[in-house]
């Protein structure tokens, strides 16, 4: 399904009460905006024309099956990967033309937590803060705050090599927050976390969002998307196939299928990605449509 600019325009008018002067007005409120984003790897069309608009202040969920193009999209939006076709703006800056301005405005935690095993957690955070232009002293203070925030104070002075997977993920999240970014990109931030750590990450996402950071996150956990995200998009085979609030996506499916009960986000996901779930005597089967 293509996006519906008309509807979004309407909902914004009612939500915020200001009159909609047109595209320019909208642009100012867009934290992430992509038009016809395409990425070709040799022999693979990973992303095939993605349009996205994430409003400032939103928590935006980006869902899709394995290999759908989520990470590829995130890597293009975070200046790490060149864009084959189309254009994108993040925090008001063109990703291809002004990557440095984008980098100053974003925090990034990628799918594979990118950490240096030979540094300690504290050193890593201090270095990250220095790279964003803080003095050594400010950086040390910021590292202390963040270590407390992600509950890694006890491990702060141990080498990252010895951290568990969950500790690494939390440290990676902390390192994405050093400069209080305008837009935070999280690629599967809770994959592999125990339930308590997952809640820590959720709390942290809500907290930074409350302080005004726009969050763009990918996830495989539909419950997570339901709990955290104001709006979400589902990508399959490199194209956006659904976009909207979790409630609206569920309502839309219920209407279209004439369902008696409210469907879950799982149902929406399976429907959107071309699979259905048949319940046969309590068994759950996934069937390719």
């Amino acid at each position: 399904m293509s996006s519906q600019p008309g509807r979004r325009l309407d909902s914004r008018t009612t939500d915020e009460g200001d009159d909609v002067a047109g595209v320019v007005e909208l642009d100012r409120h867009a934290a992430v905006e992509a038009q016809g984003l395409v990425k070709h790897y040799p022999g693979v069309e990973a992303v095939r024309g993605v349009d996205l608009r994430v409003q400032a202040g939103e928590v935006f969920g980006f869902l899709g099956p394995n290999g759908a193009g989520k990470s590829t999209t995130v890597r293009m939006l975070t200046t790490l990967l060149s864009i084959t076709e189309g254009s994108a703006r993040v925090a008001g800056h063109d990703v291809a033309r002004d990557p440095d301005a984008v980098r100053r405005a974003i925090g990034v935690a990628l799918q594979e937590a990118g950490l240096d095993p030979r540094q300690t957690g504290r050193e890593l955070l201090e270095l990250q803060a220095r790279l964003f232009g803080m003095s050594a002293q400010t950086a040390a203070g910021r590292a202390r705050e963040l270590l407390a925030l992600v509950e890694l104070e006890d491990a702060a002075d141990r080498r990252i090599k010895g951290y568990s997977g969950g500790m690494k993920r939390r440290l990676d999240l902390a390192s994405a927050l050093v400069h209080e970014p305008e837009v935070l990109f999280l690629d599967e931030p809770t994959t592999g976390l125990d339930p308590a750590s997952r809640l820590t990450v959720w709390d942290e996402v809500r907290r930074v969002n409350d302080r005004g950071t726009t969050v763009f996150l990918t996830t495989q956990y539909l419950e997570e998307a339901d709990q955290l995200c104001d709006r979400l998009a589902i990508i399959a085979g490199g194209r956006i196939v659904r976009e909207g609030t979790p409630a609206r996506l569920k309502a839309e499916l219920r209407e279209r299928r004439g369902l008696a009960a409210e469907p879950t986000l799982d149902d929406v996901f399976l429907d959107a990605t071309g699979r259905t779930r048949d319940r046969v005597a309590g068994d759950v089967q996934e069937v390719s449509a």
Binding site: T78, I106, V108, A113, G114, L115, D116, Q128, L131, F132
Partner: peptide
């Protein structure tokens, strides 16, 4: 090692 471990991307995503 840094490229394989992903830390290199972390550095590339920072404004240096």
């Amino acid at each position: 090692e840094e490229i394989e471990g992903g830390y290199f991307d972390k550095l590339r995503a920072s404004p240096v």
